[in-house]
Design a protein around this nucleic acid. Structure first.
Length: 593
RNA sequence: GGGGCCGUAGCUCAAUUGGUUAGAGCACUGGACUGUCGAUCCAGAGGUUGCGGGUUCGAGCCCCGUCGGCCUCGCCA
């Protein structure tokens, strides 16, 4: 060990000790006869003083040190001179009077410095990730991530869970996200798929009697990226036997309480609030509502349809809805230009036909460019429906159910952030439960599983599978934190007959099922216990607990939006020989013009 | 696949809206300085304005294409 202490360790209680520190040169302040070096490692910074007492030889070494050089300093811990302490540093009461200083390794001038005030461009940060990871903010986040995973493991160990690893090389399953494929060398024309989640394996583990399973599992989905989506991400995967929805939810409630307390010092009230999917969509237009603020959706279809104003009546006649949200007391902050921007936003991003709005005047009446088109009695109903007060702004969409949901959810989230309707440190945890079993595939006339094909319907909805699948609700539950889906799970189907009924509905024939999931259907016939589970998105949880706005900052080596690793330049080409071995040919790309 | 924002010195940004020699701070190089902590002071070096084409007497600025980063819709059971 070259060092005796870390750079964040020494305090006034160490005064008088001889110590050796190693680290990166954070800054150096050269006064000619005296040089101050701040040595940095992931634990902190310590000021080291080099002067003629250290020896002329070492003064020369210190003079040549530059930022990010790696150095070793040996010396006595001294109290700072009177009034020269630095309260910004945890080690600011002391300094090291160097008796020896060594350059362990020179650094080229880096493209950016970990301590520079302005954040460099993200492409540069990703290319030189080893320098970016020296930044205090990145180190804090990665340590938070480590603590969160440790707390999760501790919690589940206390509850008798077994950590089991499942294969990374598996088989492609139909439906779901696009798979990352790995060609088999041994089996011509056959491919492994990287797991989108360990779903089937953990169900098999339940059949095998490992009644409480967890895994910190890497998952892969070859879909387009977002601020909160990476092609490879990490889940805390969990499955339990002999449980219902309530048991799984309670188990995770306990985990969230522990995480909030241990890492944020927050006391959560249990049980965490729960809301059905239908209620969430009705009140907030989203299955992952941000409940840090109100601004609930008001449905005005019943009375607005009676207006002669075609925007309203036409939408209602077409089977659509007139729904809206209200900005409390801040209409004066909404210029025509700003409202035009919001209109463009809902039209462009969510396909809305337009955005209708009313401003509430001091006498309580409504004003809008469309006021003259909307009958006074209908306007009165809007006032009552929204409990309109002077200064309020009412924003309305008249469109299909889907467009009103997406558009109002989009508006609500955007306005919540722009108007700062919540404190940035605020955290809101809740559950959304009882999702539909199926949704209609847009293009084709067929049902697709909303969660996955192994999800069990609610017992009371079992007959609906045959009669009215669209109304059938699942034993499904999503954990929602600040408007993000932080996790989701279901109780699974544990008998092969029900599983086959669901497959039928999804258009998966017995032959296909046997081919793709035969092993699961077999397993279900060999004594499968009732079981269910959940998967938590660890990257997102770290992001939310760390108060960050993207998951790249929670991952040591993330990919860009175009799914590249800028540091290693992956993906890259391979030798023709490798392709031959794998029996893979690469198509010639189309010529662009 | 669609839409949007961005790309100027190593880094972060500016450039009077199309005008002739593209600037600043930090970093870098050299020098001065024994108590700084974003040290200070003096001097210096540093540019294919992402790339390619076009419009123009003239382009960092306008147009087209392209590459890269980010945001977003679709997509993500």
């Amino acid at each position: 060990m070259l060092r005796s202490h870390t750079c964040g360790q020494l305090r006034s209680s160490n005064i008088g000790q001889e110590v050796t520190l190693c680290g990166w040169v954070d800054t150096s302040r050269d006064h000619g006869g005296t040089i101050f070096l701040d040595l940095r490692d992931r634990y902190g910074k310590t000021q080291c003083v080099v002067n003629p007492d250290s020896g002329a030889e070492f003064l020369e070494v210190a003079k040549k040190l530059r930022g990010e050089d790696v150095a070793l300093v040996k010396g006595l811990v001294h109290a700072r001179l009177e009034g020269k302490d630095n309260q910004k540093l945890s080690t600011g009461d002391i300094e090291i009077r160097a008796s020896e200083i060594r350059l362990l390794n020179r650094s080229k001038t880096p493209p950016f410095f970990p301590n520079q005030p302005e954040l460099p461009g993200e492409d540069l940060r990703l290319k030189y990730r080893y320098i970016d990871l020296r930044r205090e903010a990145m180190q804090r986040t990665l340590m938070l991530r480590s603590q969160i995973i440790k707390a999760m493991r501790d919690y589940f160990e206390q509850h008798d869970f077994v950590d089991v690893e499942t294969p990374i090389l598996g088989r492609s399953t139909p439906e779901g996200a696009r798979d990352y494929l790995v060609p088999s060398r041994v089996h011509w024309g056959h491919f492994f798929a990287l797991p989108q989640s360990p779903q089937l394996y953990k169900q098999i583990l339940m059949v095998a009697g490992y009644d409480r399973y967890i895994q910190v599992a890497r998952c892969f989905r070859d879909e387009d990226l977002r601020a909160d989506r990476q092609p490879e991400f990490t889940q805390l995967d969990l499955e339990m036997s002999f449980v219902d929805s309530n048991d799984v939810i309670s188990m995770i409630d306990g985990l969230m309480k522990k995480l909030a307390k241990d890492l944020l010092g927050l006391e959560l009230e249990l049980p965490l609030p729960r809301m059905t999917y239908d209620e969430a969509v009705r009140r907030f237009g989203s299955d992952a509502p941000d409940l840090r603020f109100g601004m609930e959706i008001v449905d005005c279809t019943e009375f607005a349809r009676q207006s002669a104003f075609r925007v309203f009546s036409g939408a209602a006649e077409a089977g659509g809805y007139i729904r809206g949200i209200k900005v409390d007391r801040r209409a004066e902050e909404f210029s025509r230009k700003r409202i035009d921007e919001l209109t463009e936003f809902v039209k462009h991003d969510f396909g809305a036909k337009g955005l209708a709005w009313f401003r509430v005047e001091t006498d309580g009446s409504l004003w809008s460019p469309i006021s003259k088109n909307v009958e006074p009695e209908i306007q009165l109903q809007f006032q009552q429906a929204f409990d309109a007060r002077p200064g309020d702004l009412i924003l309305l969409l008249a469109d299909s159910w889907d467009v009103t949901c997406k558009g109002l959810n989009g508006l609500r989230r955007r306005l919540g952030a722009e108007l700062k309707l919540y404190d940035s440190k605020q955290m809101h945890f809740s559950w959304v439960v009882e999702f539909p079993m199926f949704e209609k595939d847009e293009a084709e006339e067929r049902w697709v599983a909303m969660h996955h094909p192994f999800t069990a319907p609610r017992p009371q909805d079992m007959q609906l599978l045959q009669t009215a699948p669209q109304t059938c609700r699942a034993q499904a539950y999503d954990l929602v934190i600040n408007g993000y889906e932080a996790g989701g799970g279901t109780i699974r189907i544990h008998d092969s007959d029900t599983q086959q009924v669901v497959f039928d509905l999804l258009g998966i024939t017995p032959d296909m099922a046997a081919d793709r999931f035969g092993f699961l259907l077999d397993a279900l016939r060999f004594g499968a216990p009732p079981h269910g589970g959940i998967a938590l998105g660890i990257d997102r949880i770290v992001m939310l607990f760390g108060g960050l706005d993207n998951i790249r900052d929670c991952i040591a080596f993330p990919k860009t939006q175009r799914a590249m690793d800028l540091m290693t330049a992956a993906p890259g080409t391979v030798e023709t020989k490798q392709l031959h071995e794998l029996h893979v040919q690469v198509e010639t790309p189309p010529v662009k013009n």
